[in-house]
Design a protein around this nucleic acid. Structure first.
Lengths: 238, 238
DNA sequence: CGCGAGCTTGACGTTGTTCAACTAGAGTGG
DNA sequence: CCACTCTAGTTGAACAACGTCAAGCTCGCG
């Protein structure tokens, strides 16, 4: 089943707002031809294979990345504990916090599938913000949107039990990333666990619970939502 | 013991970055006299007593608030589950996400002590951003800073055990809000619990653990950190 | 003086992690 | 072509962490 666009804005908006949705960003349209030229002069296109690290948390951030094609995970790693912040589809920007706070990356990112990015010089980027108010406002909008998504995930992971958290993530992946109730998962069970703040074993057990209850079907990487309403109910009740 | 300024930027920057620190924001200095005039024409000053609600999550957001004096908690409430997002000191802005996402407040805020605020018209605010790039950039910087703080709290609450989480919060309050190792807590045990994502009883028990181990002294609302190093170690080990 | 909200403690049950073992598939080198 | 290894996935049992419930306490306030 494919979703119609209105699914995203109706009913349980709260629950499904937890991952980034690919959006045709009007970001660069705010720039004048001259400004675009400046930005593109220092732009480099790079390709990453599935599993490759794009940037490392803590590293000096001299670039902002724009995701042309692919899917990427952003995550925090501290002393062998990993937490996935978000799954980023094409159209996303990587490294925005570095525009304002320190000159380092605040999270790592890794390609979940083969991925192409533009790498922009962070200084040019900053300068354009300081001279083009509409551009700067667009950036604020993007950061604010990310903020609200993070609020929802923050709530989910701290207030819901394992079943609710996993239901949230399955719904998000379905709505926001794959835009279908059936899809080929581009991440491991461990990734699912790190997205939901639980152990890998727990993630596997709960997937099995859902499968035994005929709420989803999952074999290997192929996941199909069989009873969307039940999954939503689990997401709400926690 | 009072902290010298360099404490904030050295050693374990990661752990102490979890609440907002009061900062003399150069925000409004970016505005021209005419722009300041526009903004202030639609500005209203309001006072809230301790415990009063400033704005409600979900309500129509026609204003951005600036915290002149006082301490405020911002929190998410869904079906009798509460999660405190942040403790905001004087100098903070409230409602920034509403500039970009929906026209509603994404969290509620409540005064923890008697509080004065300026209430700005959100439309004037938006218009100024669209015409003054330096102003818009400042807003981006503020939102980005809040984002990074949220990353840290997100990690703390999802990856650390109760003792680590409570240690984090005590350190944050000490560094960022009270700027001293001894202070009069302006919130209830329940607030501490909602800040750390645990039950009130657990918060109380762990405070007692810390007290029994002579790491802190707490009687009523008065809290004194006795062994800062031990508290930091607990924060790190989780 | 009594009431209610916040605080505190102990006993108990649940939830979720850890550990260990086992399986399946995907390279890798002889 | 066959061991060999390595990683991802899976399962069960034991255990620890944490929440819930119930009861009692304290203190400010009417």
């Amino acid at each position: 089943m494919e979703y119609s666009e209105d699914v995203f804005t109706t009913e349980n908006a709260r629950e499904i707002h937890c991952l980034k949705s690919p959006k045709e960003t009007p970001l660069f349209k705010r720039l004048t031809p001259e400004e675009t030229e400046i930005l593109n002069k220092n732009r480099i296109q790079l390709s990453f294979k599935k599993g490759e690290i794009i940037n490392k948390q803590g590293a000096f951030a001299s670039n902002i990345f724009f995701l042309i094609k692919g899917i990427v995970k952003s995550y925090i790693e501290i002393s062998n504990k990993n937490l996935i912040l978000s799954i980023l589809p094409a159209g996303s920007l990587i490294g925005l916090p570095s525009l304002s706070v320190d000159n380092v990356f605040h999270y790592s990112t890794k390609a979940l599938v083969d991925t192409d990015i533009y790498s922009y010089d962070i200084t040019s980027f900053k300068n354009l913000m300081r001279q083009n108010a509409l551009f700067a406002t667009e950036i604020t909008d993007i950061v604010n949107n990310n903020m609200v998504l993070l609020y929802d995930r923050f709530f989910s992971l701290t207030q819901k039990q394992l079943h609710g958290r996993l239901a949230d993530i399955i719904l998000c992946l379905s709505y926001k990333i794959y835009k279908s109730t059936g899809f080929e998962l581009c991440m491991s069970r461990r990734d699912l666990a790190e997205l939901t703040g639980m152990s890998t074993e727990s993630a596997i057990r709960i997937l099995k619970d859902f499968k035994d209850d005929n709420i989803i079907d999952i074999t290997g990487k192929r996941l199909e939502i069989l009873q969307l309403d039940k999954l939503k109910r689990i997401s709400v009740t926690g």
